[in-house]
Simulated scan of single mutants.
Amino acid sequence: MRLDILNHGYRPGTKVLFTLIRVFSGQPLPDAAKLVFYRPDFYGDRAKRFTHEAMRGPSAWSVADRELMAAFVSKVNECAFCVGAHTATAGRADQDAARVRAVLADVESAPIQDGLRATLRMLAKLTRQGTVSVEDMRDVLAAGVTPRQVEDALAVCAAFNITNRLADAFGFEQLSPAGYEAGAKYLLRRGYR
């Protein structure tokens, strides 16, 4: 069920900003952006800071890897909006959309490094079951992933488990392929601020 609050409930200055974004991008403003502007003091400002740090902060994982993690967690959660948004962003960041599609189709046969594969397996289990075991973490570390990389991947997972649930609860509207590509360009240029 789409909540009407995403269409209304903004201050006049925010409405003007939305109009400017729509005019200059040629695309409608995604609901994800609208959500962070609704009650920014309660959710939006904190969510933007946390997500930006998880996705663009210092990490041994590349931006493409973290965007792929976001798309992968979103696929596990069956969140169509976030799958579309982060598949486009990961493909653009990686400059290999086919690799991104391969991971989302079957992580086991996808052409990725073992460390990333082990990390994605762990994120899938955590997303589905809400828990992972010591053995799961040993498998990730044995694949060459550092403890810091595990922490960084868990931050991406946390950000997108929250975002996926909000996207579904608020009924985020799907974008056109051009809309997802415009969003991907923005996210790669400006991040999540």
Rank of each mutant, 00 (worst) to 15 (best):
N7I: 04
G13Y: 07
G13H: 08
G13R: 13
K15I: 12
V16K: 14
F18A: 07
I21S: 12
V23K: 12
F24S: 11
S25R: 09
G26H: 07
G26S: 04
L29Q: 02
P30I: 00
D31L: 03
K34H: 10
K34E: 02
F37G: 01
D45N: 13
R46C: 03
A47F: 13
R49C: 08
R49N: 11
R49L: 08
A54I: 00
S59Y: 05
S59P: 06
S59L: 01
A60R: 10
A64C: 11
E67F: 08
E67I: 07
A70G: 00
A70E: 00
V73H: 04
V73I: 15
V73M: 11
V73N: 04
N77I: 08
E78D: 14
C82M: 08
T87L: 14
T87R: 15
A88L: 06
A90G: 04
R92K: 15
A93T: 06
D94N: 14
D94Y: 15
R99T: 06
V100H: 06
V100W: 01
D106L: 01
V107A: 11
A110L: 09
A110D: 06
L116P: 05
R117N: 09
R117G: 02
A118T: 10
K125I: 07
K125T: 12
T127F: 01
T127L: 04
G130C: 10
S133Y: 04
D136Y: 02
D139I: 02
A142H: 10
A142W: 08
E151H: 11
D152G: 07
A158G: 11
F160G: 05
F160P: 04
T163K: 02
R165P: 04
D168L: 10
D168F: 04
A169L: 14
A169W: 07
G171S: 06
G171K: 01
F172C: 01
Q174H: 14
S176R: 05
A182Y: 03
Y186E: 11
R189V: 02
G191P: 03
